[in-house]
Design a protein around this nucleic acid. Structure first.
Lengths: 141, 141
DNA sequence: CTCGTTGCAAAGGCTTTGCAACGGC
DNA sequence: GCCGTTGCAAAGCCTTTGCAACGAG
């Protein structure tokens, strides 16, 4: 699976029968921008409106839902304040999160505990979440 | 640290300057009942009202917040529908969760990936969450 | 032209908060 | 009696939904 560029993702959506709107393109562009992104709907909304002014909050939410269902985006519910979204593991490299309890910054780590896990009586694992909370380099004085 | 019985926890709260009310006792009793519990505020509210009819939702929430801050209870935000609460790892044995994507049942596992994690450049870990989503014995046909 | 998509506004659902009454200690 | 706690009702906040207008193919 190729690491998703915005254009690739647009193409993929199209081939699945979805229409390509300027709003949809803007959202995909934000999500697949260079740096590793873990964003709230609010943040995505703001960045999208920088290129596509007038785009509605509902539109962002509805598209994030479509993208999540099509497994292009992964929804992460770290805390109840707001859900986070990022490119799905298939599109990006598999990783986990280091979350600073002080400044809220989120780093990614390649360490994955999943392989080490022994069989759990009868349970068939499909997905997993591993998040570490602590203090980042700047905040740990 | 002793595994918290309701009486112990009541005593601990008292020694920290909190007043002991019948509502508070009922909440602690529910949380520290025999089986490993991972409950929503709604579920706690219902069980508390079985012994203390008339207890308000706000009271449950306010107490859960106090208990979380005093590190007696741990708040787990698995999905946005509702937060889950359980005795904090210090009070209970350390464990993680196996969550069935079909029936929603939650089992616990003693497997913990934390020791295996290598140092992450400058990040000082304090807490961690590891949750595995999949299908339980009954649902995995 | 058709049917998916958007904007708008309102509703939903969990959680929090203001305030007066209550009740541990 | 004091001050933390409760009950009640209302508000907050993220997210979802109904509906008419829009627009991609």
């Amino acid at each position: 699976m190729t690491l998703g560029s915005a254009a690739d993702l647009v193409h993929e959506l199209k081939s699945k029968g979805y229409k390509i709107t300027r709003q949809r393109e803007a959202i995909l562009k934000v999500l697949s921008s260079d740096e590793c992104r873990l964003m709230t709907a609010q943040q995505i909304y703001e960045e999208v409106n920088a290129t596509m002014p007038g785009t509605n909050f509902s539109t962002v939410y509805r598209n994030l839902e479509v993208l999540t269902q099509e497994n292009i985006v992964q929804k992460i519910e770290i805390n109840r304040d707001a859900a986070y979204y990022e490119l799905a593991p298939d599109r990006d490299h598999h990783h986990h999160h280091l979350i600073c309890k002080s400044c809220g910054s989120i780093k990614t780590t390649d360490f994955c505990p999943f392989e080490a896990m022994k069989d759990e009586d009868g349970f068939m694992p499909v997905e997993h979440r591993f998040e570490v909370y602590g203090y980042c380099k700047n905040c740990k004085q």
